[in-house]
């Protein structure tokens, strides 16, 4: 029975991915991508990787979905503004089509074939002795947490997580580099819909509580900084969309401090540990639990603020372009 469900899920994911790529309209692509992300999250649950499933559902379907919808609204503005020139555009596209089919098409087919071969080889040669699971399980008591995923992410391979936070910050910097850093005007142009306001106010404490739960629960179960950060970021995005732009209210130095807090604390801790004679991110086992909790909390706040600022910057960009 479970084999049946798994194979249906696998077929569904491949089907959704194909449909997502082949959909004729951008709107369809975006919504199929939502469905694809949720199906993928379900697959991760079936594989027993609940941490990945939550992250997939939260980031790929949730946060990316919001960004995609925002971009979609932008595109619809652009196309509605350039309706009259669409005929000319259509002609040029239809002329270009044979060229598109010939060279990039061949490259695409070659690349796909190569990718399939590599995947087949990887599946064929899958290691039999369960990879590094045994080593992780053996060192788990020293890590200060009970969830092996958190132990790997924040203790054994803390370096990777630290760099990932840097990557997210770099993403924000790229958005700022393209759009420019602005002191946002406190705009109240959004029509204050009473229903939306009430629902946002209802969901804000729940999202905060649930994020905090995921953060704290990451010690001994699925959850952790990234998942909590997306939920906390959702609060900021909801409030922004509801006409209460939080990031514009707090002073700029504070938001900058919040942005770099996680990665900064991580870095300082690493240096202190290095100065103390240990290697980078080698926490003393007796403090490891507390340190990981502090790092995760600061990281979650930083990532949440980063996600909100990415959204706010892009949203602001769109508003200016559409005006």
């Amino acid at each position: 029975m479970s084999v049946l469900i798994d194979s249906l899920l696998a077929i569904l994911i491949v089907y959704l991915a194909l449909q997502c790529l082949l959909a004729p309209r951008l709107t369809q692509t975006v919504f199929l991508f939502f469905a694809f992300g949720l199906a993928l999250a379900l697959a991760w649950v079936r594989l027993g990787a609940v941490d990945v499933a939550i992250t997939e559902a939260a980031i790929a379907s949730g946060f990316l979905g919001v960004l995609f919808l925002d971009a979609l609204r932008d595109f619809s503005f652009i196309t509605s503004g350039k309706q009259e020139s669409s005929d000319a555009a259509n002609h040029s596209v239809s002329k270009k089509k044979p060229a598109f089919l010939s060279l990039p098409g061949v490259v695409l087919v070659l690349g796909l074939g190569l990718f399939l071969l590599i995947t087949l080889e990887a599946v064929w040669k899958v290691p039999e002795s369960g990879g590094l699971t045994a080593a992780t399980e053996a060192l788990l008591p020293e890590s200060g947490v009970e969830n092996p995923v958190t132990a790997v992410l924040l203790n054994f391979r803390a370096y990777d997580t630290w760099l990932e936070m840097g990557v997210i910050l770099l993403g924000l910097l790229a958005v700022m580099a393209v759009g420019g850093i602005k002191i946002f005007p406190v705009h109240r142009k959004t029509p204050e819909d009473p229903v939306l306001q009430q629902v946002i106010l209802f969901f804000t404490p729940i999202l905060f509580l649930f994020g905090a739960f995921l953060l704290y629960f990451g010690k001994n179960g699925p959850g952790g900084a990234f998942q909590a950060a997306v939920l906390w970021g959702a609060i900021g995005i909801l409030l922004h969309l509801g006409g209460r732009p939080v990031l514009t209210v707090i002073p700029r130095w504070l938001s900058q401090l919040l942005l770099i807090m996680g990665i900064g604390f991580f870095l300082m801790l690493g240096f202190l540990l290095l100065a103390g004679g240990a290697s980078l991110f080698e926490y003393p086992p007796s403090y490891a639990g507390v340190l990981i909790l502090i790092i995760e909390t600061l990281a979650a706040i930083s990532i949440a603020v980063t996600l909100v600022s990415v959204f706010v910057h892009l949203n602001q960009l769109n508003k200016e372009e559409s005006n």
Binding site: D193, V195, L196, V199, F202, F203, I206
Partner: peptide
């Protein structure tokens, strides 16, 4: 309960 709230709100917003 949360799905009810979220979906009815989004329904209302889309319709409006």
């Amino acid at each position: 309960l949360f799905t009810l709230l979220a979906s009815s709100t989004s329904c209302y917003l889309i319709a409006r």
